[in-house]
Computed example of a mutant assay.
Amino acid sequence: MVPDQPGSLGAVASAVGMAGGDIVGVDVVEHRADGTAVDDFLIDLPAGKLPDTLVSACLSVDDVDVEFVGHYSPGAGLHRDLEAVEAMTEDPRRALEVLVDLLPGVFRSGWALLLAADGSTLRVERAAGGAPEADGYEAPWLPLATAARLPTHEGWAPESWHDVVAVGAPVASTGQTVVFGRDGGPRILDSELARLAHLVALAQVVGRGPQSPGLGQRERQHLGGSGVA
């Protein structure tokens, strides 16, 4: 998290460089009303360097805080929103399944699920990553009317969900639900929840095939400017 003002990103980038980190990519994830922004740095760290070095470097910059540090191996399949949409258009009949497969890379999450339309019963149609057990449990939050954060500490949830932060978005045309989650955090931002809803809506557009309008300029601008959390 950095002050949302000119020079902040440059100051963090300089500190990371001084610590030996090579910045591969930066995405602005969220602008906040309090004058701060959440940015996602993808950094290549030389062998022998510990992530703690980068954390200390970032914290040396005034008013900067580090919310989460994750590790990604080379070729880990990280994606941007627009790349996910392009992949869906290559296989439109499987647009929702393709989206679920790519969500862990888009949101830096641990896993994603496509749930069948089956009232309040969890029925998994597609799973990506190390998703927790779900089939057959009764979830009081189903069916979803809008994209929402999911209660994972209530009585319905099996133990494998208790340390999870998760969000879901309904597939309006079919009654299915798309979910992604992180085991142990970090928290899912409001902007990420909005992006999930947008991607699910686009998957429905793509899935309807050539007879439906293609992506307009507004949608492409939205996706092109989206960050990856």
Rank of each mutant, 00 (worst) to 15 (best):
M1R: 14
Q5S: 07
Q5E: 13
G21R: 08
I23H: 04
E30P: 00
R32C: 01
V38W: 03
L42I: 10
L45M: 09
G48M: 08
K49E: 11
K49G: 00
L50N: 11
T53M: 03
L54S: 08
S56T: 13
S56D: 10
A57F: 09
A57D: 00
V61L: 13
D62L: 07
D62E: 14
E67W: 10
G70V: 02
S73V: 04
P74M: 00
G77N: 02
D81P: 09
A84M: 05
A87G: 02
E90G: 00
E97D: 14
V98A: 10
L99W: 13
D101P: 15
P104H: 06
R108L: 15
S109W: 10
G110Q: 12
G110F: 12
G110Y: 08
L113P: 07
A117D: 15
A117W: 06
A117Q: 06
D118W: 09
T121Q: 11
T121P: 02
L122P: 02
L122Q: 09
E125A: 05
A127Y: 05
A131I: 14
E133L: 11
Y137H: 15
A139H: 15
L142Y: 11
L142Q: 06
A148Y: 00
R149C: 00
L150T: 10
L150F: 05
H153P: 03
P158V: 13
E159I: 03
H162D: 13
V164R: 03
V164K: 03
A166Q: 04
P170W: 10
T174R: 13
Q176V: 00
Q176P: 12
T177S: 11
T177K: 05
T177C: 05
P186C: 08
R187M: 02
I188S: 02
L189S: 04
E192L: 01
E192A: 12
A197N: 15
H198V: 04
V205M: 03
V206N: 01
R208F: 07
G209M: 04
G209A: 09
G209W: 01
Q211Y: 04
R218Y: 03
E219M: 03
G224S: 13
